[in-house]
Amino acid sequence: MRTSELSTPFPADPAPEVRLRHAPLVKVLAQARFPQLASMAGGDVDRAFARAMASEFPLAQMGQSVNVVIGPQGVEQEPGKGSILQLRTIDEAWTVTLTSGSLAIETTNYPGRGDFCERFTKTIRAFAELANPPYFDRLGIRYVNRISDEAIVQDIGNLVRPEVLGVASMPLPEGFGLSHCLSDNAFSWPGGGIQAKWGKLPPRVNLDVQIPPVETSSWILDLDAFSSGKLSPESSNASLKDLATRSYDFFRWAVTDKFLETFGREA
């Protein structure tokens, strides 16, 4: 074992960032939630915000919010009561979403911790200048990793820690296989926490209705770190970077050096 593997998901010193040429990130999302604001009544803020962001996010779409419902037929979407504004870049790799209670940014082309946090901070500043939110209820960042290469999924026992592998390491008799195993874990600290999900999913099954499923079995590592309470918009950049760092520490604890090498570790 190389010394770059962590012994705890919450180290005293942040893990050095290792760039991966073929990182299995399929989605990174940051979100700030806020209380109902009088300044947003009437839709003027939505229109002004769209104009303020137009140089970076020229594509706009207004619609109705949706609620995610888990029922007998699985995870489904149903219409919500509020409106939703979505702004996208020309290549549609980045999306900003504004609702009556939240502002989010997501990307399928993650540029790294610093650049991502700075881009969301600029988005928050533009919104704050128009809506003047007194505080945020919650600030979060989510990283969704998915491995869908069947050969790599078969080798998952060498790519993640035994604690993460879980029942996937269980020996099974000939003719039996493990098609689905999922671990959902919540860790907390004063003022925040992280929800970590990982495991193997069967073909055409996904945990997020907004991420297209794949036709093969897959392995996911889904990390959602957050701060809660009355959070100052002015401190959002530092708070988001701290959450991103904690998420990366958890990721580095969960995976082995073989994982890093498999996905193109850069020196």
Rank of each mutant, 00 (worst) to 15 (best):
N132L: 12
L178Q: 11
D137W: 00
V167L: 14
V96W: 04
T89Q: 04
T99M: 04
I90M: 15
L165P: 04
A186V: 14
E150D: 10
G80I: 03
E163G: 11
E150H: 08
G101H: 12
L172S: 09
R161E: 10
G112H: 03
L178N: 11
T97W: 09
S188K: 10
F120A: 00
V160R: 02
G101K: 10
P111V: 04
E150N: 05
L98C: 10
V68R: 09
T95L: 11
I105V: 14
L182W: 08
G157Q: 04
G157W: 05
N132P: 06
L182T: 07
P111E: 09
T108C: 10
G74M: 00
T123V: 09
L139G: 00
Y110R: 06
S183N: 12
A60T: 10
A131T: 02
W94R: 14
V96Y: 05
L178H: 08
S188M: 11
N158A: 13
G112Y: 01
S102H: 06
V144P: 01
G114Q: 15
D149S: 00
T121N: 15
R142C: 01
W94N: 14
N109A: 15
V68A: 12
P72M: 04
I147A: 00
A131P: 01
Q86S: 12
Y143G: 01
G74N: 00
T123N: 05
G157D: 03
Q73K: 09
N145G: 01
E118Q: 12
T95W: 05
V164F: 03
